[in-house]
Nucleic acid binder design. Sequence first.
DNA 1: GTCTATAATAAGATAGAC
DNA 2: GTCTATCTTATTATAGAC
Lengths: 204, 204
Amino acid sequence: MITTRRMLLDTAGALLERQGYHATGVNQILSVSGLQRGSLYHHFPGGKEELAVAAILDRARRSERFIERHLGAVGDPADAVQALVEALADRVAHDADGASPPFAAVTLEAGPGLERLRDACRHAYTGIRACFEAKLVASAHEPARAASLAAVITAAIDGAFVLCRVDGDASPLRQVAKELAVLLRRPPPGGATAARAAPVGTDV
Amino acid sequence: MITTRRMLLDTAGALLERQGYHATGVNQILSVSGLQRGSLYHHFPGGKEELAVAAILDRARRSERFIERHLGAVGDPADAVQALVEALADRVAHDADGASPPFAAVTLEAGPGLERLRDACRHAYTGIRACFEAKLVASAHEPARAASLAAVITAAIDGAFVLCRVDGDASPLRQVAKELAVLLRRPPPGGATAARAAPVGTDV
DNA sequence: GTCTATAATAAGATAGAC
DNA sequence: GTCTATCTTATTATAGAC
């Protein structure tokens, strides 16, 4: 059974992800979901912000599960991250309008007066980075390096979603998938940097 | 002389960057700038959206110049990008509230009805990626790889700004600066064996 | 070019019947 | 739990004096 509360969380979550907080009106949430004002304020007495906080936290949990599932399916972290980002690109290619970083817009809009919303976004981003970090540590990466790589993975995916939006195309996510795999691939023991030793013509 | 038009562009640009389009009201632009409604609608008869478009395009030009200046100051592209992102991190550390990707929030908010705003954002992101791409091509990177790397650099910086916002700290940008340098020093996937200096094997 | 009063609309939230 | 009428406030935009 699909509860009213679930309907509100899903509708609000999708709109917040795509448009951000201020561009998403209570009226729009109601018209899209087909629900009535009374239901919203019954389930979320705190109104729009309380619903937004709950929707963000709900989507954060789902995002973490999605990431963990994909990372758990492939052993090598470089391959796993590449497959995960390719899956996101496929999703964007299939539904170009849904090309959105889940929390970026709301995070940037959550200024003074929306502290609880900002806390929810912080929680979301912390959890997502932790997923990548755990995978990297489990693959014998040094903890500090794992944290650094997790931040870059999270950031690059978010930014790629934005580029997908402006391009109307999934290519940026595919480019990020490929390059993150390059970054995560451990250099051969001998140190492959030797070949790169002579960048002729690059000095000014 | 600081013209009224310039004051409007700077004020609106800063607020749009920090808060996005819908969270930034005309009233706020006026109160922060100390100007009056009449001035705004005189210089921008199209109202809020016309001002926003002009402010975005103005900031896009400035961003490109900032990037070109930093990339031009250092020969090696890995070092140059690292220095650029470190400079952004310093800026964030100095003014933590100013931790914002310049165009991400507005891009994500620019849905149906704000097509001109979206076009301005597309123009901004295209120009920024082109700056990195040009630097990489000039450093003997294969064009397709340069485009891919430029997208990743742009995306990672944008995403790092968002993480800086939620963390209240410049660390994500510093992590991205370090890891992008690692990525840019890494030989391409195909396995650039010896002498990356001669772009052998770049033909398909 | 600039200022202010006002219009027109949309926003989020509430009250009370059912 | 759900629905609808209504309140309050904030929004963008315009008109017309200066």
